[in-house]
């Protein structure tokens, strides 16, 4: 059974103009699936529906077969900005989802402390977010996302605000940490290279209203390294995906 199943989801904010029309997606255990598409194409709206923040007019969101449509608190959601709370220390920020779920503060901090070193954040437990670099803050936000739910995660352009070098660093780190934790993840990006490098599958969200228009399987062994990003096979994936994206863009005009 798939971890997450999005079935025939249609959504509109005002009941008239459809943003999403009949979206179907699945996420298998341990899989990373990228959702690629033009900005304003409904990617973030799709995530807000999957996260339960918005209820779709039709369709269902199933987590391990259980209907969680319109019910927040089950799937972890990470937005583009880190949204670390400036007044909480790193340990309190990352353990916030546990505290919200009702865990005792001390216990939640202890769980966070175990994982901080795995996320390259050893020794930062008592620091405030302002004391951390952009990359570290993003890793803290990822750790918070992971502590929120080990079942499935939605990452909305988590690395797009970082500079190129930090971003490459984060990709390397993310690939290695994913080898260990194998978090089932939907990943929004507008960066084709990033999508190919990180994903098991790349889905294109296109059209107006948006629906899944194409899917590419990135059939590459893991762990992946930067060599893959320079290989002929990588370029071939990129050629195919770019061509399809252009086709979808042409449709919009």
């Amino acid at each position: 059974m798939s971890v997450l199943e999005i079935k025939n989801v249609s959504f509109s904010y005002d009941g008239k103009k459809r943003i999403l029309e009949d979206v179907n997606l699945t996420l298998e255990r341990g899989e990373l699936v990228s959702i690629l598409g033009a900005s304003g194409g409904g990617k973030t709206t799709l995530f807000s529906v999957i996260a339960g923040l918005n209820r779709p007019q039709t369709g269902q969101v199933l987590l391990n077969g259980e209907d969680i449509t319109g019910r927040p608190g089950r799937i972890s959601y990470m937005l583009q900005k880190d949204h670390l709370l400036p007044y909480y220390t790193i340990e309190d920020n990352v353990s916030l989802p546990l505290v919200i779920r009702g865990m005792k503060k001390q216990e939640a901090r202890a769980r966070a402390a175990e994982l901080l070193p795995h996320f390259g954040l050893a020794g930062t437990a008592k620091d405030y977010p302002a004391q951390l670099s952009g990359g570290m803050r993003q890793r803290a936000a990822l750790l918070r996302t992971y502590l929120f739910s080990g079942e499935a995660a939605l990452l909305d352009e988590p690395f797009s605000a970082l500079d190129t070098l930090t971003k490459a660093d984060m990709h390397r780190w993310y690939l290695s940490v994913m080898e260990e934790i194998r978090l089932s993840t939907f990943f929004i990006t507008h960066d084709i290279d990033e999508a190919i490098l990180l994903s098991d599958r790349v889905c294109l969200l296109g059209g107006r209203p948006g629906s899944i228009r194409a899917e590419f399987k990135i059939d590459e062994p893991r762990p992946r390294t930067e060599d893959f990003a320079l290989s002929e096979r990588f370029l071939e994936y990129k050629r195919q995906i770019s061509a399809k994206l252009k086709e979808l863009a042409a449709e919009r005009h």
Binding site: S48, A51, G52, L53, P72, G73, R74, I75, S76, Y77, L79, K81, H83, L85, L96, P97, I100, R101, F148
Partner: peptide, 21 residues
């Protein structure tokens, strides 16, 4: 910040918890 509030809502936070945090 409305996005931060959305983030906490996605964690299943109640109105009181959003106020508190």
């Amino acid at each position: 910040d409305p996005e931060t509030i959305d983030l906490l809502r996605s964690m299943g936070a109640s109105r009181a918890q959003i106020f508190r945090h």
